[in-house]
């Protein structure tokens, strides 16, 4: 089979090798282990939670992981000001309460915050544009961490730049806290089309054109080549931002997402557990309309979050850090 995990020299220097005390030759924090973690969440739903109660609901509903944050994206929009990570005691409480993976968000480029989150023992760190960026030009250099990172992307260039920096998982951004799936659709379509284009170049043996693409996207040639060869991103790619109904989730899966992030959509509705279970069902069985309709029947549109469209938004989160 194709080698899905080529180890490059600079990846190796970024790998942190800790030896277990009881046994020799145990290696942690490798690219394979980090990307592998993300692979295990495929076909699942990762839910934004702010409290232990919500984390329990998410686990019961069949979430594959939870994402801990201080405020749901829609509340970040409403309250304004600087959005920072969740309080450490809350992250710890959630880590103790549930068996599924726990992820937590830090600000773009805030390496110290990410180190703190790693220290809590969180399974995965989200370098997230939902929070206020700390460095407007650089993202975190993620190779130096044992914990895997998930990062947002809105086109192929931004996705591959994050992978070059060591991200183990990508989520196409959408526009968080809006309940509007349109932006998520736009971004995944864009990424898919761009991958098709470079795949075509690879199959036509147009290496010079691939090099040109790499320069245009400011990405390493190796990452572009790897992606072109695979015909998909070298890491798992989830859809995020604005997904609020089971059918939204099924649509994103149909468009080729590996899984779904749901933020405000669930806990800003009045039927959280029902809606969470329904989104999980639709994500697993997106190919079976007879199951998606069942999922869709589980939720009531009158209880859905109201949502925002583009022109009603005060500010856009998706553009944050996208060019760097």
């Amino acid at each position: 089979m194709k080698n899905l995990f080529p180890e490059r020299s600079y990846m190796k220097t970024g790998e942190i090798k800790k030896l277990l005390t009881t046994e020799e030759n145990v290696v942690r924090g490798t690219n394979r282990v980090k990307r592998g973690f993300a692979r295990m969440t495929k076909g699942g739903v990762i839910m934004d939670v702010t409290t232990v109660e919500q984390a329990h609901i998410a686990e019961e509903a069949g979430a594959v992981a939870v994402m801990v944050l201080d405020k749901l994206p829609i509340d970040v929009r409403r309250s304004g000001g600087v959005a920072r990570p969740a309080s450490i005691p809350i992250i710890r409480d959630i880590l103790d309460a549930i068996t599924i993976p726990v992820m937590a968000k830090c600000r773009l480029g805030h390496t110290a915050e990410a180190l703190v989150l790693q220290e809590t023992g969180a399974d995965c760190i989200d370098e997230s544009e939902v929070l206020t960026p700390a460095d407007e030009f650089r993202h975190i250099w993620k190779w130096d961490f044992v914990a895997p990172f998930v990062c947002g992307a809105l086109d192929l260039g931004s996705a591959l730049r994050r992978i070059d920096e060591g991200a183990a998982m990508i989520r196409t951004k959408g526009e968080p806290g809006t309940g509007n799936v349109a932006e998520a659709v736009r971004h995944i379509r864009l990424v898919n089309n761009e991958i098709r284009e470079i795949k075509g170049l690879y199959e036509a043996d147009e290496n010079q054109e691939l090099m040109f693409k790499a320069r245009e996207m400011k990405v390493s040639f190796e990452t572009v080549l790897e992606t072109a060869k695979l015909g998909r991103l070298p890491t798992v790619n989830f859809a995020a931002g604005g997904i609020s109904t089971p059918a939204d989730a099924a649509l994103m899966m149909k468009l080729g997402s590996d899984g779904i992030f749901v933020g405000s959509g669930i806990f800003k509705s009045e039927d959280a557990l029902q809606r969470a279970s329904a989104v999980v069902l639709a994500t697993s069985y997106w190919e079976n309309p007879e199951v998606v309709i069942e999922a869709q029947e589980m939720v009531s549109e009158t209880k859905a979050m109201l949502g925002l469209t583009g022109s009603e938004m005060k500010f856009s989160m998706q553009e944050r850090g996208a060019d760097s």
Binding site: V27, R28, R32, A122, D123
Partner: peptide, 8 residues
Amino acid sequence: RQQESFEL
């Protein structure tokens, strides 16, 4: 959790 994941 994940940070204890390893290769051997």
